[in-house]
Structures are given as C-alpha cells and as structure tokens.
C-alpha cells in the first residue's frame, strides 16, 4: 500500500512528534508527555500480547497439538487446562490458585538455581581466584596481592553493611558495636564508589540516547527541508 518514501516519511514524522512529546518532560509533567506514555503503554502491551501469542501459544501449544501424537496431546492438554484455570482467576480466585502454586514452585527452584549457579558460586570463586598467584609473574605479585586485598575487603565489608541486626536486652536498647560501625563506615566508601561507577555507566548510555535522538530530529528536518 505505502511506497517506501511515504512509509519513511510517516515513520519519521511519528518519531519526531513522539520524541518532542517525551522531551517536553524536561520542563515538567504535562499532557503531551502523558499522552505519549499512555500510547506507548498501550502499544507495548499489545505488542507483548502478539509476541506471546506467536512464540508461546502458536509455537509451543497449538502447532505441536495439531502435528503431534496422542502422548504429546495429553502432555499439552495439562498446561492448556491449567492456563484456562489461571485465566479464571480474573473472576474467581480459587480455581487458579493451585496453578499459581505450581508457578511459584517452579519459579522458586529457578531462582535458587540461578542465584547459586549464576551469581553466588561464580562470585565466590572469583574472590578466591584473586589470591591464586600460580600463573602470575613475581614482578607484579605485590600489585596483585594489594588489589586482591582491596577487592576482598570491599566485598566482605559491603556484605557486612547490610547486616542490620543488633542485640537488645531489657536494660539497654539495641546498638551496633564499635567494630560494626567502623566496618559500616568503610563499606559506605566502597558502596559510594560502586554506585558512582554504575551511575557513570547509566549516564553514558543515557547521553548516547540523547545524542541519537537529537541527531534524529536534525536528520528529520534536513530530509524535510534541505534535500
């Protein structure tokens, strides 16, 4: 229906208008920004529905049911029934509750496995390997040792910072010990540096996006009036 230049023009126009509407937030919350956000939420929800419908319902449920044998059909009928029970949660709470229990169980197992295998063990191994000098040259042994001690101190103190428990008895209220307060002060220094580094990374990415959008606005005007 559309020729390529017309489609590009409409896309560019939409892109320009919505970019300006979002940028208007810099001067404060306003109706243009809200309209843009609400349109975006609607489109995103619709788009997610389409992707889920194609990737999950068609590819994982309907197509295997139409092409598979009886065993596959029986195996896929179970999640189908569970899915309809889950949908019934919108109006009735009870029938879908055991499906939620199933999802929570699977999610908890995936969370435990992910936390253990994806973060906890690799990070602990990386902390241990800081002091593995077998492959390092003796010249930078001291450098590596100091580096390892600083990283390990940062790791342990940062972990200790999030320990908020204190001992309390009837005579005196709970108060953290002098040692804990010293650890907390050093940990705050490490946490400030870590968040600073993360902040700088996010700011760099956001600045890149700002440059890209500004460039796109200039390009749109160029292509409209000067080409």
């Amino acid at each position: 229906m559309f020729s390529a230049p017309i489609a590009d023009l409409i896309t560019g126009l939409f892109s320009f208008v919505f970019t300006i509407m979002i940028f208007s937030y810099v001067i404060g919350d306003n109706p243009f920004f809200r309209v843009a956000i609400h349109v975006f939420v609607g489109l995103a929800a619709g788009f997610v529905t389409l992707v889920v419908f194609e990737q999950i319902f068609i590819n994982k449920l309907i197509a295997p049911m139409l092409t598979g044998n009886w065993t596959q059909l029986a195996f896929l009928a179970i999640p189908l029934i569970m899915g309809f029970l889950l949908l019934s949660k919108v109006r009735y709470q009870k029938p879908g509750r055991w499906v939620v229990a199933f999802l929570v169980g699977v999610g908890a197992a995936a969370a435990i496995a992910g936390a253990l295998g994806g973060t906890l063990l690799p990070q602990v191994w990386a902390s241990i390997n800081l002091f593995d000098f077998s492959e390092n040259q003796s010249a930078n042994f001291v450098d590596k040792l100091v580096e390892g001690i600083i990283i390990l101190t940062g790791t342990v103190f940062t972990l200790a910072y999030f320990q908020f428990g204190v001992r309390e008895n009837a005579t005196k209220p709970g108060k953290s010990s002098v040692l804990m307060r010293a650890i907390t002060s050093i940990a705050e220094f490490f946490i400030a540096i870590t968040f600073g580094a993360l902040f700088a990374g996010v700011l760099s990415a956001a600045l890149t996006a700002l440059v890209e959008r500004t460039h796109s606005i200039i390009n749109f005007f160029n292509s409209l009036f000067f080409q």
């Binding site: 169980g105 969370a111 906890l120 940062g154 790791t155 972990l159």
Partner: peptide, 27 residues
C-alpha cells in the same frame, strides 16, 4: 576495576543470598 569491583561483588553476593533465602522460604 578494584574499588567498584569489591563493592559490586558484595552487593551481588547479597542479592544472590536474598534470592536464595526467598526461594528456600517458599520451599
């Protein structure tokens, strides 16, 4: 690569321990 890594590693281990505990409490 030194100071921020130490802090980030502490935070990551803390988050993983939190996720582990949440999962175990459900279990």
């Amino acid at each position: 690569q030194v100071f921020a890594t130490g802090g980030a590693r502490g935070i990551l281990i803390g988050v993983a321990l939190g996720a582990l505990m949440t999962g175990l409490r459900i279990f």
